[in-house]
Structures are given as structure tokens and as C-alpha cells.
């Protein structure tokens, strides 16, 4: 149990089993993240960065190891509590920046609020605030199918922010963005982590983005190294 660490992961391993054999993706991951930290995770393609983020978001159960969030052993949670965890404590930006198709930007951002039981009258203000952070308030009622790649990515970021989570897990959130928008998003992340109790984990291939984080880790051969 970490003293004051928001995220505390030790000896985490993930071995995928498919029909043919087993793929040991994560071998030994130890990671402590404190409130106010912004951690970049780098590493070659296929090294297991997304896998690690999925485990942190409780989308995937690790094969071994422990994971505590704010002192709580979150691997022991049942399905309902896991859902509760996902909607109250983490905001996730998927690598493929998935949006709900056939829905507007507003509806995409509304779902996390619906599941979190936010009052209907409160929602528009919160959705607008989240969109303002990514400069997309003018697209609020656009169909998600008609957005550009970068716009989709920014909506995905806004959606991760809308519930004001404790931990933001972002899988290449700036992959399709130009420099100024990438920095805009990193600015917001920096602003968010300054508020106490919040941490951001960013997977990125961009050294410039990694340079804006408080810490950089890299994954190689299933082992997470600092620096």
C-alpha cells in the first residue's frame, strides 16, 4: 500500500491466451502515480501500452499483480463496482478515439453524465464547459460521423473530462492533432492535474508531448522503466 499514491501498481503481468498459444505482453510492471502527476508512457508499437491502460481503466483484468487506487484494491471489485469505478474515477481516451456513431457530439458527452446520474438540467453547462476546453463548443450539435479525425479526438478528450475524473487515461490523445491543438490539450491536462487528487497517464509516441509530462516511463519487453 503506497503512502499517498493515487495509483499503485506492483508486479503486474498480462498474458494473452489465444487459440495458438500465450502472448506475454506485460511481464513486470511497477508504477506509482501521485496526485498532481502527469505520466507519459512510451514504447514501441505492440509493447503493451494500450493493454496497461486498459488494466488501469479496469477494462481488462491482469493475469498477476496488484492494483490499488487511492488505497483501495480495485481488482477485487465486482462488476457493478467496476462500472461505478469507471464512471466516477476514470476518464478514458481510446487510441481509436471511438465515438458513438449516429449520435451528436452532445449525446456523446451526455452518456457519461447519464450513467453518473447527473441531473438533466446540469448537463448542458458541463458538456459545454468540457467542449470549450478542446475548442469545440461550435460543434456541439454536430453528428459525430461528420467530424474530422482531429475533431473526433478532441471530442473523445472532452468526453473523458466531462465527469471530472480522478484519473485520466489517454491513449495517444494527440495522435491526429496539429501542434497547437496537441499543446492545448496538454495545457488542459496540466491544469487539471494541478488540482489536487488528479493524475493523468498519457500514452504517446511524441517526445515533445512526453516532454510536457512530469514523468516519462517506457515499456519494453513487458517491463516498465522509468525515464
Amino acid at each position: 500500500m503506497a503512502n499517498g499514491a493515487l495509483i499503485s501498481v506492483s508486479n503486474l503481468a498480462k498474458i494473452y491466451a489465444n487459440g495458438v498459444g500465450t502472448i506475454p505482453v506485460l511481464q513486470k510492471v511497477n508504477l506509482k502515480i501521485f496526485p498532481g502527476e502527469m505520466v507519459a508512457v512510451m514504447g514501441p508499437s505492440g509493447s503493451g501500452k494500450s493493454t496497461l491502460l486498459f488494466i488501469l481503466g479496469l477494462f481488462l483484468h491482469p493475469t498477476r499483480g496488484s492494483y490499488h487506487l487511492a488505497g483501495e484494491d480495485v481488482l477485487k471489485l465486482d462488476r457493478t463496482a467496476q462500472a461505478e469505478f469507471r464512471r466516477r474515477r476514470v476518464g478514458f481516451v481510446f487510441q481509436s478515439c471511438d465515438l458513438l456513431e449516429n449520435s451528436t457530439v452532445y449525446e456523446n458527452l451526455e452518456f457519461p453524465l447519464i450513467y453518473a446520474g447527473v441531473d438533466r438540467r446540469e448537463r448542458p453547462a458541463r458538456i459545454l464547459a468540457a467542449l470549450e476546453q478542446v475548442n469545440l463548443e461550435h460543434r456541439i450539435h454536430h453528428a459525430s460521423n461528420h467530424l474530422s479525425g482531429g475533431e473526433r479526438q478532441r471530442v473523445a478528450v472532452a468526453r473523458a473530462l466531462v465527469n471530472q475524473p480522478q484519473v485520466i487515461l489517454a491513449d495517444e490523445p494527440t495522435g491526429q492533432l496539429d501542434r497547437s491543438h496537441s499543446h492545448l490539450i496538454m495545457d488542459h491536462f496540466a491544469e487539471i492535474v494541478k488540482k489536487a487528487e488528479t493524475a493523468v497517464v498519457v500514452v504517446t509516441h511524441d517526445p515533445e508531448i512526453a516532454g510536457r509530462c512530469t514523468r516519462v516511463c517506457s515499456l519494453d519487453d513487458g517491463i516498465l522503466y522509468e525515464g
Binding site: 481503466g57 462488476r79 462500472a83 461505478e84 452518456f111 450513467y115 453518473a116
Partner: peptide, 10 residues
């Protein structure tokens, strides 16, 4: 999957 990731329960 997305909705579950956004916190939807079963």
C-alpha cells in the same frame, strides 16, 4: 463497449 467504458453497468 464504449458505453461500458463510460461507466454503464450491465
Amino acid at each position: 463497449g464504449l458505453k461500458k467504458a463510460m461507466g454503464a453497468e450491465d
